[in-house]
Amino acid sequence: MRPKTILVIGGAGYIGSHQVKLLDQRGYNVIVYDNLSTGYRDLVTVDNFEEGDLADKDRLREVFNKYQIDAVMHFAAFIQVGESIKDPAKYYRNNVTNAINLLDIMLEYDVKNLIFSSTAAVYGEPEEIPIKETHTKAPINPYGRSKLMIEKILKDYDQAYGLRYTCFRYFNASGADDSGRIGEKHNPETHLIPLILQTALGERDDIYIFGIDYNTKDGTCIRDFVHVNDLADAHIKGLERLFGGGGSETFNLGSGKGYSVKEIINQAKEITGVDFKVVEGERRDGDPAILIADSSKVKQVLKWEPKYTLNDIIRTAWNWHKHN
């Protein structure tokens, strides 16, 4: 029996590249499709790389003609909240219109298994902690709205055309592969742990804390961090459930544990051995005090358990940043 062929859209990006590596290790035939606008060719660990954009339906058709694709994983969204507020058109074009292009080509070629990466940003301001999948969906920025639109579109495509999906709402993807071969590379960097580690490396003068007067144990925001390889493992479990005939489903993906900004900074100082400069400042608009996932559904349905601790997350990220 031939191995199943998985098309990974955005497989040269941070999460996509870790997904590609794990799929390959588990015996899948992996094809990467990426326009390299935010991805990097050197993060791709398999041979089958196809450069192309989701806006280009003819290029997509070439790829679907060339390979016998069994399922698609979609990681090719723009993800910067601030940028989405400044330039919503860019986000709706790529995250919504281009995603519909992909769905339509999938149907054209009778490929009806999709793994879709969504976000906790679909929830907006939390009404309850931890956040369950049933929480009100009221995103407060175009990025979150673009993801929620596709979630709704997927439901309609499933009902009308039988396109089955597993949708994962990420909290904070973090860490790097144990090998040090791939890791988190954004330009500009906006994520907390890489910014802290860049400060430890002397690439930044200081790390800035946005707000120290929240109603939390140390006054700083609390967030749920999950290792990128734990995410990739959940995606494969979601994929195998679809291949086994499972119906469409949506899951939170987080560790279910919350860590404050100060806790992460202190842990990073311990792991790196560097006492870097920390600046305490004003709150940022739209930052809830606490965001923690209720991940009981994904644990129950997919039998998924995160294996990496916060220490592992920072240690693997540090190993990557030191050498890259």
Score class of each variant (00 low, 15 high):
162 G>I: 03
163 L>N: 05
163 L>H: 14
163 L>M: 04
164 R>C: 05
165 Y>S: 11
167 C>E: 04
167 C>R: 00
167 C>G: 06
168 F>I: 01
168 F>K: 07
169 R>A: 01
169 R>N: 09
170 Y>R: 13
170 Y>P: 09
173 A>I: 15
173 A>E: 12
174 S>K: 08
174 S>E: 07
174 S>Y: 15
174 S>R: 10
176 A>V: 12
176 A>Y: 04
177 D>K: 00
178 D>N: 13
179 S>L: 09
179 S>C: 03
179 S>I: 12
180 G>P: 11
183 G>V: 08
184 E>Y: 09
184 E>T: 02
184 E>V: 12
185 K>T: 13
187 N>V: 14
187 N>P: 02
189 E>H: 00
190 T>Y: 09
190 T>I: 14
192 L>D: 10
192 L>V: 09
192 L>F: 15
193 I>C: 06
193 I>V: 15
194 P>Y: 01
194 P>N: 02
195 L>C: 06
195 L>G: 07
195 L>A: 02
196 I>Q: 05
197 L>F: 10
197 L>Y: 07
198 Q>I: 02
198 Q>Y: 05
199 T>S: 11
199 T>E: 04
200 A>G: 03
200 A>M: 08
202 G>I: 15
203 E>W: 13
203 E>R: 05
204 R>L: 12
206 D>L: 13
207 I>Q: 10
208 Y>N: 03
208 Y>V: 09
211 G>Y: 06
211 G>L: 03
212 I>T: 14
212 I>R: 13
212 I>W: 05
212 I>C: 10
213 D>R: 00
213 D>N: 11
214 Y>K: 06
214 Y>L: 08
215 N>C: 08
215 N>M: 09
215 N>A: 11
217 K>H: 08
217 K>R: 15
218 D>E: 04
219 G>L: 06
219 G>D: 05
220 T>K: 01
220 T>M: 08
221 C>F: 08
222 I>E: 07
223 R>M: 06
224 D>Y: 14
225 F>N: 15
226 V>T: 15
226 V>R: 02
227 H>M: 14
229 N>M: 04
229 N>V: 06
229 N>P: 10
230 D>G: 00
230 D>H: 03
231 L>Y: 14
231 L>A: 00
232 A>V: 02
232 A>Q: 07
233 D>I: 13
234 A>W: 14
234 A>C: 06
235 H>D: 14
237 K>W: 05
238 G>L: 12
238 G>F: 02
238 G>P: 15
238 G>C: 01
238 G>D: 13
238 G>I: 00
240 E>T: 07
241 R>H: 10
241 R>K: 10
242 L>N: 06
242 L>V: 06
243 F>D: 07
244 G>H: 04
244 G>Q: 08
246 G>P: 03
246 G>E: 06
247 G>N: 03
248 S>T: 00
249 E>S: 12
250 T>C: 12
250 T>R: 03
252 N>T: 03
252 N>Y: 14
252 N>L: 00
253 L>W: 02
253 L>R: 00
253 L>C: 07
254 G>Q: 09
254 G>Y: 13
254 G>K: 09
256 G>Q: 14
257 K>C: 08
257 K>R: 09
258 G>N: 01
259 Y>P: 15
260 S>T: 08
260 S>Q: 11
260 S>E: 15
261 V>D: 08
263 E>A: 06
263 E>H: 01
